[in-house]
Design a binder for these strands. Structure first.
Lengths: 206, 206
DNA sequence: TATTTAAAGTTGACAATGTTAACATATAAT
DNA sequence: ATTATATGTTAACATTGTCAACTTTAAATA
């Protein structure tokens, strides 16, 4: 606010405000609601002001997506109780992940969306989420659980991917309305997690 | 072809050709590549000809999505060997599902996409995929497996949803490039399926 | 069969969107 | 103090989906 009133021409920190305002717009109206006119109107600049900070709308959205991933990672891991049993840790990570998706469906859809195909072709390395800090935290928990003889000593990387698949799939099905057990989301998650840990097969102590 | 050459003005079966041509366009270039100009150019009509068959582009895409779902269901279940062991049946269903997503990433993204928000608000019943025939076939296999003492006698509907979550999540992660174990897709699926069936926990015969 | 009616297709225009080029202004550097 | 650079503005453009008015063919009715 002060930056705006001080100098009416130069905005001050337009780049960051473009990102944060875009974040607000996605969360409330979805990615399609981010139009350059509306976005710059909200910040009191002209429609093309953002081209001094981003090469295109695409690049802006890219940074919004990165900010969104950071919000997800923070939400999932920052509130994690470090004294917990390792199985409970995995449980709470999963629960927080689903919670985030349900609370921020539009943002979740955007960060995992595919509208960034072109840029993905170029920066082919940076886009694999496996390199994300959040994913590695999950892998670490799984390794700990393996060492504590809680989980099978398989490839921890793959086990983490399996868990992530489950969380990602459940999140998408829920926020896109393909599953209408809305009042039973908790039950559905608990069964999913239980399945992840112990499977759905009869326990024949093989 | 004959319909076109016979009467140059009236197209004949424009509606169905619009849908099938749109299907081709999604598969090759993604949903964003379906532009009314390009679509109608391919069929040799004017840009607005489709408004005699669909109320909007949105409605056309809706029907394309429905056709896409039918393709998915057919692919997953039509080649299923009915003599198979029930666990193998589940395995093959899952494998076919992933295969379809990998072979038709753009189509898969479209049918599970969210660009149909407005219409979904109205036809709130029809859009839950749980009502789809494919999902019910999966539930039936699971019920059979329960009766054969292969699976735990939990809620079959939920078990099917858990399996679907895993498949959907894995499909999305793979086709969106979040997992770069491209040469190990089979291994990843096998571990996922094994996890679904027997979990990742140590077998302590609890 | 002749005439009317409805269905299907076309044309031209419109508003909204992202983008660019040319210009304007403020800040930083010399 | 002057120059150079960063930042912001304005006007225009092509592309998109959509609509209104018109044309042409097929169907219905007399």
């Amino acid at each position: 606010m002060n930056a705006k009133t001080n100098s009416s021409y130069h905005h001050g920190n337009l780049k960051e405000e473009l990102i944060s305002e875009s974040l607000k717009m996605v969360e409330s109206g979805g990615i399609a609601s981010i139009t350059l006119r509306e976005l710059t109107n909200r910040l009191g600049t002209s429609r093309t002001a953002l081209y001094r900070h981003f090469v295109s709308k695409e690049e802006l959205l890219q940074e919004v997506i990165q900010a969104g991933f950071e919000k997800l990672d923070t939400y999932v891991f920052s509130t994690l109780d470090s004294d917990l049993d390792l199985t409970l840790k995995l449980h709470d990570v999963g629960k927080a992940y689903i919670d985030f998706a349900i609370k921020n469906p539009n943002l979740y859809r955007m960060i995992f969306g595919h509208e960034l195909k072109e840029q993905r072709e170029e920066n082919c390395d940076i886009n694999e989420r496996e390199d994300a800090p959040g994913f590695h935290k999950l892998v670490d928990i799984i390794i700990d659980a393996q060492n504590a003889n809680i989980l099978k000593k398989d490839d921890a990387f793959m086990q983490a991917t399996v868990m992530w698949s489950m969380l990602h799939g459940l999140s998408n099905l829920l926020i896109d309305g393909h599953v209408h057990i809305v009042d039973n989301i908790d039950t559905l998650f608990e069964l999913s997690f239980k399945t992840l840990i112990s499977g759905i097969a009869l326990d024949l102590s093989e």
